Amino acid sequence: MREVRAAIGFLRHSGSRYGIDPNRIFVGGSSAGGHLTGSVLSGGWHAAFDVPEDVIKGAMPISGLFHLAPISRSFVQDWIKFDDQSVRQLSPAENLPRVGCPIVTAYAAGEPDGFKRQSAEYHRLWREAGFSSTLMEIDNRNHFDVVLDLANSEAALSKALLRLINGDLQPR
């Protein structure tokens, strides 16, 4: 998580040297990448990397883990060893920012129920915090292949990403 936040700080401070507009940073990822997307959307880290709270202009977390408590109650706990404080600090749903950007929260129709629930809950929390979120269920996809729709310019997920970047997304 720290590395991803540091990368955002680097893009903000040095991106223009590489042809990147540091004022138009969008993030996204699937599964663990969806969790990391939520982590850079979270509040409380910006000062450490000298970036404004609105450094992220839009995001697309796909099938992410936004509450880590279920992980701490699974077999993974045997080696990950989360304590209650770690679960809270590392759960994007428990660390919503003061300043939010538009997001598209997506999941595959063929996901396990836990990913569907977490995505819908994160979408709900984001909207309750006063921020724009669109929730999408992607038909005929599962947890592992849902991102393939981003390579298809005719797919709903791909079109939503372009609308997000262009500022044309209407929340639903």
Rank of each mutant, 00 (worst) to 15 (best):
S30I: 12
A129V: 03
V51Q: 04
S63N: 07
V76N: 10
A7M: 10
D83Y: 03
G43R: 03
R124S: 13
L68Y: 06
R163F: 00
R73G: 15
G114D: 15
Q170P: 08
I80M: 14
G34S: 06
I71C: 02
S133D: 04
F26H: 04
A129G: 03
A93Y: 12
E53T: 08
F75N: 15
G110H: 04
F10E: 10
H13N: 12
A48I: 04
F49D: 13
V51D: 03
F10C: 05
S39R: 09
F26T: 00
N166C: 14
P102D: 02
P52W: 01
S91P: 02
P112A: 15
A129M: 01
A6M: 11
C101N: 03
H123W: 10
D83W: 06
H143K: 00
R24S: 13
W79T: 15
G34A: 06
A69W: 12
P102S: 06
G110L: 04
G15T: 07
G28Y: 08
Q89T: 13
L65K: 01
V4G: 13
K116C: 07
S119D: 06
A151Q: 15
S158E: 13
V147Y: 05
L125Y: 04
S153M: 13
C101V: 13
F49C: 11
S63H: 03
D83N: 12
I56V: 12
L148D: 14
S42W: 06
M1V: 13
S86D: 15
A6P: 09
N142V: 10
S158N: 14
W45V: 01
W126A: 01
G58R: 03
R24I: 06
G167C: 08
I71T: 08
M136D: 10
R163W: 02
I165E: 11
A59R: 00
G100D: 02
S74P: 06
F75C: 07
F10M: 13
Y122D: 02
G130K: 07
P97C: 01
Q170W: 02
Q170F: 10
G29P: 00
V146K: 01
A156L: 10
L125H: 08
L11A: 04
H67Y: 15
V99Q: 07
R117C: 00
L36Y: 00
H13Y: 11
R98F: 09
S42I: 06
G15S: 01
A106T: 07
A151G: 14
V104H: 01
A108G: 09
G15K: 05
P22A: 05
F144Y: 13
R163S: 14
W126T: 07
H35F: 05
L41S: 00
L148Y: 12
K116N: 05
G9W: 06
D83R: 05
G64C: 11
L125T: 00
E94C: 04
D168N: 15
V104I: 11
E128K: 14
E137N: 07
